[in-house]
Amino acid sequence: MSGPPTPDHRAVELPYRALLRRNPVQQRSVRRVEDIVDAAAVLLSDRDPSRLTARDLAATAAVPTATVYQFFDDLDAVCQALAIRFMAAMPAVVEAAVAPRGPWETVIDDLIDGFAAMVRTHPAIRALWLSGVLGEATRTVERTLDRRIAERIGRTVVQRARDAGWSVADEPALVQWEVLVAIIDALLRRAFTLHPDGDDATLAEAARAARAYAAAVLSGVAR
């Protein structure tokens, strides 16, 4: 007797469903939508979003050009969908950073390493990130996600610091952890602006700056 069917990652709820002009109901339609977004990821790995064309997108996805516009208003909507898909994967990077037991400093190091590895693995992130193509709706999703990341990292860093003997009597304000996430975001952007794989020196300084800010928050200097 055969075992249970292997789960199809395309069967899950599409994180960018709100961007679609038509809601795919049948599994075949969901697959076509994901094929289009997959194609955008392939094409944006070596080109700017401004050079994306419907013809190339359809050819790479192996669908008629009309199918692209059946589900998306325009190519910008495809880029926004891809960005949101990448954002949906970011909490897993955070969980991987907080999972190992160790000093709070390693949480920050692992977070930066994890996000850098994600960009290296998916070059399209760099294209979307640095092009300024993201719209306000996508930025809203990003801000909500950044807050969730800040909450998760903040709780973990405080607990690890207390475990290590730090006297953290009060919970730091959420805005302080949001600033930490913003620092990491800005310095990662700089690192990947300087080099497609992320400038090593800038990534090292990003970790040093983020640890220094977190230490200041924990010690009360930043409050």
Rank of each mutant, 00 (worst) to 15 (best):
G114S: 11
Q70A: 13
R47A: 11
L43V: 04
E142T: 06
L111K: 00
S167P: 02
G132R: 09
V98S: 01
L19T: 04
A97T: 09
I112T: 15
A88D: 14
T193W: 12
S45H: 06
V217G: 07
S131N: 07
L180W: 06
L57S: 08
D109H: 10
L57W: 11
P103N: 07
P123A: 14
L145N: 05
R31M: 12
V179I: 15
D73K: 08
P4L: 14
E136L: 12
V217C: 10
L111Y: 09
T202M: 10
R22I: 08
R51P: 01
E105N: 06
D73Y: 01
D35I: 04
V68P: 03
M87D: 11
R47G: 04
R10Q: 09
L20G: 10
V78L: 08
V63G: 10
P4V: 14
A214P: 04
G3A: 08
A58L: 03
A99K: 12
V119K: 10
L134A: 14
R162H: 09
T67E: 15
R55V: 15
R101L: 10
V63S: 06
R32K: 13
T6F: 04
M118I: 01
T202A: 11
L203I: 13
F72P: 07
G114E: 01
L19K: 04
R155I: 05
I184T: 05
T140C: 08
P172D: 09
P49I: 02
T121N: 10
L130K: 08
T65P: 00
L44R: 11
A182L: 12
D48T: 02
A92D: 10
D197I: 00
R31P: 00
P100K: 06
S167M: 11
L111H: 03
P172R: 06
L203R: 09
V175A: 13
M118A: 15
